[in-house]
């Protein structure tokens, strides 16, 4: 029997199936993804990276930074915290509710807790536990908040506040999620190190900023120049052993500035519908208004 046509069909349908599954369907599902709103602030997310940062993405690509750095935060759990923001009007009932929630607390501990607000009463609870606690504490107009807290080794390490989602890469080309963590994950490096000058110095001399870092330096992104009239405001302030001879300075080329701008722009921490998270409210700005 001639199996040639059967063989062709077998290979064709197997590959077509895989193509349909992992090329066509993702494109149908995600290819027209639009900007979304962060929750609850309603800010548009993501916004396109500024021009210099977009150029920096190209420098990141050209020098293969993704060979050693991932940009994917994993999340293995979502837990709830219950936070008491305001005790309301009925202090006695509140204290009773608190003692019900925390049977091992003494009277004075409860009073102390009520004195220092906001107070996190439950940590790492399930949704059901948190709902029950909120019901218990909901007396006399008390304000109880439920915080959603993503968890997992990456988040505990401080590499991100939530898992990475499709929206985070919406405007990037190419998308470089990386496959190896020879160095730290960079999905939120702009949150951890928001100063472009830190990045410039780190690129020029990694071991000045991070002791014993195995990262190669990227001196070809910088140039050594004679100081003409005055020191350039861009010049790196290097420790004496790395500083060039007197009369010279090290200034970043455009590529280095762009790369630093890109790194600073890496912040995938907006709370979204598909990756919820309660961010602590920013501290109220100091004013001269009389206290309420």
């Amino acid at each position: 029997m001639n199996y040639g046509p059967l063989l062709f069909l077998a290979a064709f349908f197997a590959l077509a199936g895989s193509w349909f599954g992992f090329v066509l369907t993702p494109q149908l599902q995600l290819g027209r993804l639009q900007q979304t709103n962060s929750i609850p602030s309603g800010a548009t997310y993501p916004v396109a990276r500024p021009g210099l940062a977009r150029e920096g993405l190209d420098v990141y690509r050209a020098n293969g930074c993704a060979s050693c750095h991932s940009q994917q935060i994993g999340q293995t759990a979502t837990t709830c915290d219950v936070v008491l923001a305001d005790t309301g009007t009925n202090q006695a009932a509140m204290k009773a509710a608190l003692l019900k929630l925390k049977p091992d607390w003494s009277d004075s501990e409860a009073r102390q807790a009520l004195g220092s607000l906001p107070q996190t009463l439950l940590r790492g609870a399930t949704r059901e536990e948190a709902d029950a606690a909120m019901k218990t504490l909901n007396v006399g107009g008390a304000k109880v908040q439920l915080w959603i807290v993503p968890g997992g080794p990456d988040i505990a390490r401080g590499w991100g506040k939530r898992r990475t989602v499709a929206e985070d890469f919406l405007f990037d080309y190419p998308v470089m999620p990386g496959s190896l963590r020879a160095g730290p994950d960079l999905a939120n490096i702009g949150v951890r190190q928001s100063d472009p000058n830190w990045h410039l110095l780190h690129l020029y001399a990694p071991r000045v900023e991070v002791r014993d870092s195995p990262m190669p330096s990227f001196r070809f992104l910088f140039e050594k120049r004679r100081i003409e009239r005055a020191r350039s405001p861009d010049a790196l302030s290097l420790p004496p052993e790395l500083a060039p001879e007197p009369g010279y300075e090290i200034v970043p080329r455009l590529q280095a500035k762009a790369l630093a701008a890109y790194l600073v722009s890496l912040r995938a921490d907006a709370p979204l519908f598909d990756a919820p998270l309660t961010a602590p409210a920013p501290a109220a700005p100091a004013t001269n208004a009389p206290a309420k």
Binding site: S18, F22, V23, P26, Q27, L30, G31, R32, L33, A166, E167, D168, F169, L170, F171, D172, Y173, P174, V175, M176, P177
Partner: peptide, 19 residues
């Protein structure tokens, strides 16, 4: 075609690259 000539948008690129 889908990653270089007529690049698809966003994270679909990564999916096709993994595929």
């Amino acid at each position: 075609l889908l990653l270089i000539s007529f690049p698809v948008r966003g994270v679909v690129q990564a999916v096709i690259a993994w595929w």
